[in-house]
């Protein structure tokens, strides 16, 4: 049915637009001191409002500027609804996140590719903990509250992940005798 396939197409256009603009919108929210889940929520609301308003993107000169200011309005409204005032830094609309600007040397590029590969090979829980800590910038307490993992488990997953990505040195191989002493273990 043409109607539903058109809807899917326009959805996909919005998903692509969302994907393109998400990184610096997220960063804008973070720099203004909002919590990651609130930021994500407000980005969603910004784009849902565009869909609802039938924005004709061909009429908009600088989509990025338009999207960024709509999002900042959402941030300000949210802050006001909570009785707080935030100063939204406005350095972010003209450039992408720092990372996108850096032109990496070939060696650094290779390292980055290796790091990405190692990350994708990690167990899902390791990946989640690393993403929450290094992308969303959550503390261990916040990660525990969001995932229900124990602090011990967060620590273990984090160090396992960082070791696999070779950002931390792996433990020296232990002799079986030492390993045994670490375990509560008895022979039946």
């Amino acid at each position: 049915m043409p109607r539903s396939s058109n809807t899917t197409d326009s959805n996909e256009q919005y998903v692509a637009l969302y994907r393109q603009h998400y990184p610096y919108l997220f960063k804008t929210g973070q720099n203004a001191g909002f919590a990651p889940d609130i930021i994500k929520d407000l980005i969603n609301q910004t784009f849902l409002a565009f869909i609802e308003k039938h924005i004709d993107w061909s009429q908009i000169d600088q989509p990025k500027f338009y999207i960024a200011s709509s999002f900042k309005n959402k941030l300000t409204d949210y802050a006001r609804s909570k009785g707080k005032t935030y100063t939204i830094p406005d350095t972010e609309t003209t450039d992408d996140s720092i990372e996108e600007k850096i032109i990496l040397t070939e060696e650094a590029e290779q390292l980055k590719a290796q790091m990405q590969q190692a990350y994708l090979a990690l167990p899902p829980r390791c990946r989640l903990v690393i993403r929450l800590k290094y992308y969303e910038g959550l503390t261990h307490d916040q990660i525990a509250a969001q995932t229900g993992l124990s602090h011990r488990s967060i620590y273990n997953n984090l160090s396992e992940g960082l070791k696999a990505m070779r950002l931390l040195l792996a433990d020296k191989p232990q002799r079986p005798g030492q390993l045994l002493s670490l375990l509560a273990l008895c022979i039946v």
């Binding site: 998400y22 990184p23 997220f26 990372e99 990405q116």
Partner: peptide, 13 residues
Amino acid sequence: VQQLHAVLTPLAA
């Protein structure tokens, strides 16, 4: 840390 952040950015998006 910045490199790790750079790796995570596209994946998170």
